Simulated scan of single mutants.
Amino acid sequence: MKLIIFFNGWGIKSLNFSVGNGWKIRYLNYPYKYEYEEIDLEYEKIIFVGWSFGVYYLNRFLEENPSYWSYETIGINGTPHMIGERGISKKMLEYTLENLTEESLERFYKNIGILDNKNISIFDGKKAISELKIELLDFIDNYIERENYIKKAIISKNDRIIKFKNQKKYFTENGSLIYEIDGEHFIFNEKKFVSRLVDILDEI
């Protein structure tokens, strides 16, 4: 059995998707604190995966914990430089914070690639608007650019949140192995993209 430590994106609790037998997923949400557990000794391998904002927080964790630098790391549609030309403009983040409502959150879900509320079942419930504002404010106020510890980067050609070309440029310049897919920012509700993720995991 192998373990994925999954650093989740903003706006999401946990995800109800499976990468098949032989894998277990442990989700980390804000404030993204991974604590080693005795049971971790039982796993054949531990792989760190970050998606969206989770890529940034995974790199923060690795910066602060050099003992994990030898572990395999995968970043999905996010960079360690999440504010600016390699991520999302600060102006857009501040606008989102100031105007966040249930309606604007639904638009966000559509923009990341969830077509309608039927797909919301992949989430383990929604976070409250007040929680999401706290998380986003903390991110903006305490943001610093991180070093890159992502060994494999999966980037979506149709990402409407973080431009594909910006992600590709960043990871090309910083030595990560890049996998390009045709999906949107959120890839976990389409079997073909989860299957691609499984293929990449199985290569490790």
Rank of each mutant, 00 (worst) to 15 (best):
E190G: 04
K157S: 12
K163P: 06
Y149P: 06
D199H: 12
I181S: 01
I187F: 06
N189Y: 04
S195N: 14
F171S: 03
E135P: 01
K165G: 05
G175W: 13
F164G: 03
R160L: 08
S156D: 05
F164H: 11
I155A: 00
D141C: 06
K163I: 07
F186K: 00
E147T: 10
A153C: 11
I161H: 03
F171H: 06
A153Q: 08
K163V: 07
D182R: 06
K169T: 11
T172Q: 13
E145R: 02
F188Y: 10
G183N: 09
N189P: 08
K163T: 07
S156A: 15
A153K: 05
A153D: 06
K151P: 07
I150N: 00
N174R: 14
I144N: 06
N166S: 13
N148C: 13
I155D: 03
S156V: 07
Y179W: 13
Y143K: 02
F171G: 02
I200E: 14
N142R: 03
F164W: 07
Q167D: 00
F139W: 02
N148D: 09
V198G: 07
I154Q: 03
F186W: 05
T172V: 07
A153W: 04
I181F: 00
A153P: 08
F139A: 03
Y143R: 05
I144H: 04
I181Y: 01
I178H: 12
E145N: 06
I150R: 01
R196K: 15
K192Q: 15
I162E: 01
I134Y: 05
N142H: 07
I187Y: 04
K191V: 14
V194F: 12
F171C: 09
Y149T: 10
K192F: 11
K152A: 04
F186M: 04
K152L: 07
Q167G: 03
S156W: 01
E180R: 11
I161Q: 00
E180Y: 12
R196P: 08
S195E: 14
F186G: 04
K169P: 04
Y149K: 08
R160N: 08
Y143I: 02
N148L: 08
G183Q: 04
L197T: 09
K152S: 10
K152Y: 10
L137D: 11
N174T: 15
E145Y: 00
K169D: 13
Q167C: 04
K151Q: 12
K157A: 12
I155Q: 03
D182W: 01
E147N: 15
V198L: 14
R196N: 12
N142F: 03
Q167A: 02
F193Q: 05
K163M: 11
R146N: 09
I181K: 03
K163Q: 13
K169I: 14
I178P: 09
G183P: 06
R160D: 06
R160C: 00
E184A: 13
I134E: 09
Y170C: 02
G183K: 01
E180T: 14
F164A: 04
N142D: 03
N174A: 10
E173Q: 15
F186R: 01
I134H: 01
N174H: 15
F139Y: 08
F188V: 04
G183C: 10
I200G: 10
I200H: 09
D141N: 15
K157F: 11
